[in-house]
């Protein structure tokens, strides 16, 4: 989509245009008009759209332009011009400092939020494990005790076969109970019974991107989403597919962070291929060398072709494409 490709240049272009307009206006107007103060607008705008590292540079550029236009201005009273220049400089510096502080605070809040989410997940998992372990331990302990009792009934001088048989029946019941707990646990870790249905893959991907947006922005990673067909329909459990896409995106972010490069890029591409809906997530970060994009594809045919069950059960494949994008 052309619109997606150019949207990443939109903000820098607007910023540049704004700077030029202010510079020209500043040069053409009298010294008495404090035009450079308007550079603060540029800085505030930039704080919302560009990365933290560039903000200080932009502020310095604005200062330099204010000074340059002072020398090029021909009309007006020079002392008032100097006073105006001083005031504008102060305004620009103060605004830049505040904007940097604000961005820093936002980063900290974001990181705290992320670690909180991780802690919550870990706690839920550990709580779940504890209760499962306890539940499973009960029938196992009962089996142990019953078999010990059974052995004792049989080793009496006059063996009590009736009691021994009862103990064996109990052992069987407890084993069945343990098996039932295990199958319930399996259903639980799968996150409930998956429900396959027809849905638009593009919408699902956009949802995930919205959720991951702040993480991508925080690490200065650009993302590109390409829908090669419109719409790409898939037949699966949408929540599971979103979990997979979310995980792959998180992996991509981690891989890019490892290289500490500035121009991180993640590309998500979805298309139709025979009766498959295909989704490709590609990043230019470190990976299994050189770069390992994963393809996750899945049947989009009629319901009978998609098995109920986990993603792995239903013909999802992760494969390495022949064409590898070089980082």
């Amino acid at each position: 989509m052309p619109a997606h490709r150019y949207s990443r240049y939109l903000h820098p272009l607007c910023l540049a245009a704004l700077v030029v307009v202010i510079f020209v206006a500043d040069t053409l107007t009298h010294y008495e008009v404090a035009m450079p103060v308007l550079y603060t607008v540029v800085i505030l705008y930039a704080a919302l759209v560009i990365r933290r590292g560039y903000l200080a540079g932009l502020a310095l550029l604005c200062l330099a332009l204010a000074v340059v236009s002072f020398f090029f201005t021909v009309r007006g009273n020079v002392p008032s011009g100097l006073i105006n220049l001083g005031l504008s400089t102060a305004a620009i510096v103060i605004t830049a400092c505040l904007a940097l502080k604000m961005l820093h605070a936002r980063d900290i809040a974001l990181r705290a939020q992320e670690s909180l989410a991780r802690v919550t997940t870990a706690q839920t998992l550990s709580g779940l494990t504890t209760s499962i372990v306890h539940e499973l331990n009960q029938p196992l302990a009962a089996v142990t005790m019953s078999s010990q009792a059974c052995a004792r009934w049989l080793s009496l001088p006059a063996p009590d076969f009736a009691r021994a048989r009862m103990a064996l029946t109990r052992i069987e019941e407890d084993a069945v109970r343990a098996a039932a707990i295990l199958s319930r646990m399996r259903a639980l870790t799968k996150g409930g019974t998956p429900e396959a249905k027809r849905f638009a893959l593009g919408d699902a991907v956009r949802d995930v991107l919205r959720m991951m947006r702040s993480r991508l922005d925080q690490h200065g990673i650009t993302h590109r989403f390409v829908e090669m067909h419109e719409p790409v329909l898939a037949h699966a459990d949408p929540v599971q597919i979103q979990q997979i896409i979310g995980n792959l995106l998180a992996n991509a972010i981690d891989a890019i962070r490892e290289t500490k490069q500035a121009d991180g890029l993640v590309e998500i591409r979805i298309w139709h291929e025979e009766d498959h809906a295909c989704c490709r997530i590609e990043d230019n970060g470190a990976g299994i060398p050189p770069v390992l994009p994963f393809i996750c594809s899945r049947h989009s045919g009629p319901a009978s072709r998609t098995e109920q069950g986990s993603v792995l059960q239903s013909a999802a494949t992760l494969s390495r494409p022949t064409r590898v994008r070089s980082g």
């Binding site: 009960q138 089996v143 005790m145 019953s146 010990q148 009792a149 009590d160 103990a167 109990r170």
Partner: peptide
Amino acid sequence: DDASIRQALEDLLMSV
């Protein structure tokens, strides 16, 4: 509180 533990324990202790 677990019935099967109770039964197994009872049987084990009675066997001794």
